[in-house]
């Protein structure tokens, strides 16, 4: 069985994330890492591999700047078997349509997948649309936003906690599967895992390797454009009182009354 896990390299959410002068996300000047939400996808892929009877190859696939190799490496340290980084100057500033095109081509180059796995959303763009787009491009069913994943042979069943209902979704491989942070904590790389990762195959593809024309990607080919970005003015810290001898509740109520909430 072939599992491709799509992992994104994102600016650290606890760092000062910002935009470049062309309004694209600064992916180089801010410390980055493997998107935490994609660790859950790696974890579920590894669990499927561990449970499976036959041979399973887990490939971690990332599109990003050269530094993004860190995200692939982390996935290898966690236990993925091989890694692929697609990097090319022309990709910078790509929108979802272009990113999904490149990801789809890369998935096809890796081989015929049984499962293409994704996180529920990236932690920077947070669109949560790429898995569905990838499914559309690869003409595969999507079983997305799983909070519990079960596989048996080529059958996949997941629980999906929707807005108005909890559903059980089923499908037959090959398919695109995305998982939420409810699927269970992701493992930390062990020392052994970190050592082993150094010997695992890690390939780098350019757009030319994938047969994608540079004119189809990047900021110039985007279907949407950012007009402007503005930092939200920081909230000015308001009044903070200590609850001494039960005074806190009264002060809080007075505040709510002054703001007409009561």
């Amino acid at each position: 069985m072939n599992i491709v896990v799509c992992v994104k390299y994102v600016p650290d959410a606890t760092a000062d994330r910002r935009f470049e002068s062309d309004n694209t996300v600064d992916r180089v000047g801010v410390d980055g890492l493997l998107s935490e939400l994609d660790e859950y996808a790696v974890e579920q892929a590894l669990q499927i591999k561990e449970k499976a009877d036959g041979d399973v190859t887990v490939t971690a696939l990332c599109i990003g700047p050269e530094k993004a190799v860190d995200a692939v490496r982390k996935a290898l340290q966690m236990g993925a078997d091989q890694g692929v980084l697609v990097t090319d100057e022309a990709i910078a500033g790509s929108d979802y349509l272009a990113t999904s095109l490149v990801l789809a081509k890369a998935v096809e180059k890796v081989g015929v997948p049984d499962l293409v796995m994704c996180g529920m959303s990236s932690t920077d763009g947070a669109g949560a649309v790429l898995p569905a787009m990838l499914a559309e491009r690869l003409d595969l069913p999507q079983v997305t936003l799983a909070s519990v994943v079960e596989t048996q042979g080529d059958q996949v069943r997941v629980k999906r906690d929707g807005d108005t209902a909890t559903e059980v979704i089923g499908g037959t491989m090959p398919l695109v599967l995305s998982v939420t942070d409810q699927t269970g904590e992701a493992r930390y790389p062990s020392f052994k895992g970190i050592m082993a990762a150094k010997k695992k195959p890690l390939e780098t593809y350019s757009l030319a390797d994938l047969g994608v024309d540079a004119g189809q990607v990047g900021i110039g080919a985007a279907y949407s454009a950012v007009e402007d970005t503005a930092e939200r003015p920081p909230r000015s810290a308001g009044e903070v009182v200590k609850d001494e001898d039960g005074s806190g509740a009264g002060a809080l109520t007075d505040f709510l009354v002054s703001k007409k909430f009561i």
Partner: peptide, 15 residues
């Protein structure tokens, strides 16, 4: 979001 995502690819539209 997911219906919009698939539609974007089908009709070639920005999202």
């Amino acid at each position: 979001k997911e219906v919009a995502a698939r539609l974007a690819i089908k009709i070639g539209a920005g999202i």
